[in-house]
């Protein structure tokens, strides 16, 4: 538990941060919450030459809805804030269900959603949630140009994201809902605070009883978080009933690519995906919408 040496920068503006990462290139690592990065450094699984701590940069710790109805989550917005947000409670049920299931209270006090997605751990919960919401990561470069990267294209492999050298992820963004959102996040964990054996994010955007847009994504059952496109499409334009729910659950289970490991067999994990999609879609909240 003794990290290697590194150079440390704590810029107070984004411009300074860009200077620091420019000097070190791929050898620089951005430190926000640090709840994924610091454990890796402690175990010497990672040994960046330079750490750029962005915690002193004002204006990154926010959670707000824009005028067009989209939601922006700043790079320093902690899980803690999400867990206690009435905005999420009312309008983003899948996010509100997920926040308290991230690690433990101390980690939530420090860790961030954006950092978690950048870390791209296939067992990370937030990427699934953002996939189900059609979310994006906002990347910014030294010139101040921002680009939006759909999370489906942002997380490109286990622990790999598609940020380019010199870019900083400054926010995550959720597009406006097409109707009323319902949804939930169901997580099978061996113990509270554990990574997901199976996690299922469900986001439905509905008008009346009709599903305008369905988002279903899986955690822990593949090399990446998995967006269940077929299952989503099977629900679009439909209403929830026993047969549409069953079909979506089957398609989601088919989309899973689990492995046999200490958490269970391939068959078991697929079964849990099926069960959780079914439970999520059958829940009181989903039916009520």
């Amino acid at each position: 538990m003794y990290p290697s040496r590194f150079h440390y920068e704590a810029p107070s503006t984004l411009d300074e941060a860009f200077e620091a990462i420019e000097a070190y290139g791929d050898e620089a690592k951005i430190l926000a919450g640090g709840m994924s990065l610091i454990p890796l450094i402690k175990l010497r699984f990672a040994a960046p030459a330079c750490i750029v701590d962005i915690n002193n940069i004002p204006g990154l710790d926010y959670l707000e809805e824009e005028s067009d109805g989209s939601l922006r989550i700043g790079a320093l917005c902690r899980h803690r804030t999400l867990e206690r947000s009435s905005l999420l409670r009312n309008n983003y049920p899948v996010m509100f269900a997920t926040a308290p299931l991230i690690a433990d209270p101390m980690v939530r006090n420090r860790g961030t959603l954006v950092g978690s997605i950048c870390h791209a751990d296939p067992q990370g919960d937030w990427a699934s949630v953002m996939l189900s919401l059609g979310g994006e990561i906002i990347a910014r470069n030294a010139e101040g140009r921002e680009r939006s990267i759909p999370v489906s294209q942002f997380v490109v492999g286990p622990f790999q994201n598609s940020l380019q050298t010199g870019e900083i992820a400054v926010a995550a963004k959720v597009p406006p809902a097409r109707g009323t959102r319902t949804g939930t996040y169901l997580k099978l964990e061996r113990r509270v605070g554990d990574f997901a054996t199976v996690g299922v994010a469900i986001n439905l955007e509905m008008s009346g009883g009709t599903i305008n847009r369905a988002g279903i994504a899986l955690t822990g059952v593949g090399g990446n978080n998995i967006q269940c496109t077929s299952a989503e499409q099977s629900l679009a334009g439909k209403s929830l009933n026993a047969s549409t729910i069953d079909q979506a659950a089957r398609l989601a289970a088919d989309a899973a690519q689990p492995k046999n490991d200490v958490r269970g067999s391939i068959e078991y994990k697929r079964h849990i995906v099926y069960t959780f999609v079914q439970r999520g879609l059958s829940s009181r909240e989903a039916r009520a919408a």
Partner: peptide, 27 residues
């Protein structure tokens, strides 16, 4: 009594051994 062991026992009505080596193969 991990959930997946209990589930396997229920589904196949059979005993479940925990003897290593752990099965880790994919697919």
């Amino acid at each position: 009594l991990l959930p997946h062991r209990v589930w396997e026992a229920m589904k196949y009505k059979r005993d479940v051994s925990g003897m290593p080596p752990l099965k880790t193969e994919a697919g």
